[in-house]
């Protein structure tokens, strides 16, 4: 390699986010996106979810579940666009868009979880 790059760091975020996304995210989307709307399981009450989300452990958990998978997405989607569309001249714009999006989502989740 001719110059040092940050790829290793981004790959680490990708990898950690991939694990978190694989283990924790399916059940969340299944419950809130499929099972509750279809009435397969009873929708939890507002008070119950608020109490749950306010506990320190849940805040940390939800922050990890929101932030790392977004960086997983940023890395993987970046390469999907590079390889799938082969738009070399747009690579820098794609980079900024992907990691910028992940950063905005992370900050937003941090804000929501602090205020909740």
């Amino acid at each position: 390699m001719s110059k040092p790059s940050n790829e290793g760091f981004f790959w680490l975020l990708f990898s950690a986010g991939g694990v978190v996304a694989a283990v924790f995210i399916p059940v969340l989307l299944f419950l809130f996106g499929v099972a509750f709307p279809l009435g397969w399981l009873p929708q939890p009450s507002y008070e119950h979810l608020l109490t749950l989300a306010r506990s320190p452990l849940a805040r940390i958990f939800l922050f990890v579940v929101c932030s790392l998978p977004l960086f997983h997405w940023a890395h993987r989607f970046r390469f999907t666009l590079y390889d799938g569309l082969q738009v070399k001249h747009l690579n820098e714009a794609i980079f900024v868009l992907c990691y910028g999006g992940a950063l905005v989502g992370t900050l937003l989740s941090g804000y929501l979880l602090l205020k909740i």
């Binding site: 809130f32 977004l70 997983h72 999907t80 989502g105």
Partner: peptide
């Protein structure tokens, strides 16, 4: 490779839920 889009979408749903709770 496209599964990452579903992952990002799930985070968006979670953020919408948290915002509604707030």
């Amino acid at each position: 490779e496209l599964t990452s889009v579903a992952v990002a979408w799930s985070v968006v749903v979670t953020l919408l839920l948290l915002r509604s709770l707030l």
